[in-house]
Every structure is written in structure tokens, then in C-alpha cells.
């Protein structure tokens, strides 16, 4: 399958930063259409900088990024690129423009100049997809964090993007809100074929991914399926990252001398593996 996003050897340094420390240092990765991709990395690994490159908010100093074959440096394609790749940020409060939920969701299609009936259709569809249709006339500041973030996702879906990038969307949420948001984006990917790029440092959110990229110092240092990436616990710890709780448990059990296969990832698989080993 042809990748929807290609990042080719990208270098980027913020203005005013130390010339020796670049935010991106030759990042290269391909993301295929319809996949659920997770990008992991500790603070300052360049993952948020990479996210802002994917829809042309930042432009690379060197190298290039192709979104569905369009170069992000091509200004004539900028709107098309931003419509293809939607972006959801960490703080839901700081990405809402309107005082009513449905007006906020309508913001993007209004910017794209669709006729009013088409906008209405897209807004209702988007709100139903994230299960917030009943709240369409509410004021955003009275919603919970998880609900606000779902409205922010609806605001992006209203553009009917082929890909959604979420930059630590759960960092400011309580566990219940985190669950709501992760469930919603998984559903969008599995049932509606939207490519999801989730940037996070919650390792547990990476378990269901199709592909995981680990970033460090502006470079991709490891990539593969979650099983492949998490099988190398020592390497991840060397990057200053933790592993999902289930993986950590099996790692510690193995260190303690229990003979147990490393492949288990989900809670069920882990329980099964431990039960078999103890028999």
C-alpha cells in the first residue's frame, strides 16, 4: 500500500536554539493509510515537533514531508494538506473557538467554504461519530475534559480528513476521560478507516497499535509492531522510556527466574502466559 505520509530525512531546529541541538535530526518514517500508528518518546525527543511538520505548521530545514504525494513546502497545497491531515492538541480548552459545541465543530468546514447545508450535515455526522451529538447546543467550558477532547476530535472529523494526528491528547485528562478519547480514536480507525497517528508517552495506549515508532533526540530509534518494539525492554529503558505494565510484569518475572514467553502484550495474554508458566 502507498503510504499516506512520508517523512524523508527531516532536519529542523527552532530559531534561537543552540545550533548544535536540533529538534529533528534526520527523522525518516512512512505511515500507511488506515493504520493506527503510535509515536513514543520522552519529553524533548522531537515527537511534538514532528507532529507540527505533518500538516505544514512547521516546515523542515532539510529533507521533505509528503502528504498523499503533496510536499508540505508547496504553499498552494497547504489547505489541501491540512484538510487531509487533521490535528488534535493536548489542551482541549485552547483549541476551541466558539461558545457553542456545534458552532465550534462547524469552524473547519466554514473555513473551507462549504455551503450551509453541507456544513450542517458534516457537523451532525462528526458529533454522532464521537458520541457528542446530544451536547451540540452546550457551552464547551461546562463539559468534562474527555468530552471537550471528543468535541475537538469532531471539529477535525468535520473536514473529513484521511488522517488524524493527536499530539498527547490524553495528557491533561483523568483516567475516565483518557479511556473515552482512546476508545473514540480506535473506533475511528477500525470502523471508518481513518489513519490515526497518536503521539503519547502513555505506554499502555500503544498496545493496540498496528505500528509503533520510538523517537529519541529527533530520530526514530526503533520501529515495528508493539510486540517487536516492547520485546526489547532494556533498549527502551536506555532511552528513558517505560514499557506497558503487562510487559514490565513479565520482564520482572523473567528476571526473577520464572520461565515465561515474552510475547504477551494485552492483559488477557499476560494472564494466560503466567497461568501456563505456573502449571
Amino acid at each position: 500500500m502507498k503510504p499516506i505520509i512520508q517523512v524523508k530525512d527531516v532536519y529542523f531546529r527552532y530559531e534561537g536554539d543552540d545550533p548544535l541541538s536540533s529538534a529533528l535530526n534526520g527523522t525518516t518514517l512512512d505511515i500507511e493509510q488506515g493504520r493506527f500508528v503510535v509515536i513514543l518518546g520522552h519529553n524533548g525527543s522531537g515527537k511534538s515537533t514532528l507532529a507540527k511538520h505533518l500538516n505544514g505548521i512547521l516546515l523542515p530545514d532539510k529533507g521533505c514531508i509528503l502528504v498523499d504525494g503533496m510536499d508540505t513546502r508547496d504553499e498552494t497545497k497547504l489547505l489541501e494538506i491540512r484538510r487531509t491531515v487533521g490535528m488534535v492538541f493536548q489542551n482541549p480548552d485552547n483549541q476551541m473557538v466558539a461558545s457553542v459545541v456545534e458552532d465550534d465543530v462547524a469552524f473547519a468546514p466554514e473555513n473551507l467554504g462549504y455551503p450551509p447545508e453541507e456544513i450542517r450535515l458534516r457537523v451532525d455526522e462528526a458529533l454522532k461519530l464521537v458520541d457528542m451529538y446530544d451536547y451540540r447546543l452546550h457551552s464547551p467550558h461546562l463539559l468534562s475534559g474527555g468530552q471537550k477532547q471528543r468535541v475537538a476530535i469532531a471539529g477535525v472529523i468535520a473536514m473529513r480528513p484521511r488522517c488524524i494526528v493527536l499530539d498527547e491528547p490524553t495528557a491533561m485528562l483523568d483516567p475516565a476521560g483518557r479511556h473515552e478519547v482512546i476508545d473514540t480514536i480506535k473506533r475511528l480507525c477500525r470502523e471508518h478507516g481513518i489513519t490515526i497517528i497518536l503521539i503519547t508517552h502513555h505506554m499502555n495506549e500503544a498496545i493496540d497499535a498496528d505500528r509503533v515508532f520510538v523517537m529519541s533526540n529527533g530520530k526514530v530509534v526503533s520501529e515495528g509492531t508493539p510486540k517487536e518494539v516492547f520485546s526489547n525492554v532494556e533498549a527502551l529503558k536506555a532511552e528513558g522510556l517505560t514499557v506497558p505494565d503487562s510487559v514490565e510484569l513479565i520482564y520482572q518475572l523473567r528476571l526473577a527466574g520464572l520461565d515465561i514467553p515474552k510475547e504477551a502484550l494485552t492483559v488477557e495474554e499476560t494472564a494466560q502466559a503466567i497461568a501456563t508458566a505456573l502449571k
Binding site: I57, G86, N91, F107, A108, E110, N111, G113, P116
Partner: peptide, 23 residues
């Protein structure tokens, strides 16, 4: 600052060619 980036990400480019849902 964050709001400006979020608005740009949602294709905001000034009033030109913008339509409204509720006319």
C-alpha cells in the same frame, strides 16, 4: 499561541472564502 496553531490546523485563512453554517 496554541489557539492560533489549532485554528490554522483547521484551515483558517482569514475571512476570504469563508461560509457560515447558521446564515
Amino acid at each position: 499561541d496554541e489557539l492560533a496553531i489549532a485554528m490554522e490546523s483547521r484551515c483558517y485563512h482569514g475571512g476570504e472564502g469563508r461560509t457560515r453554517m447558521k446564515k
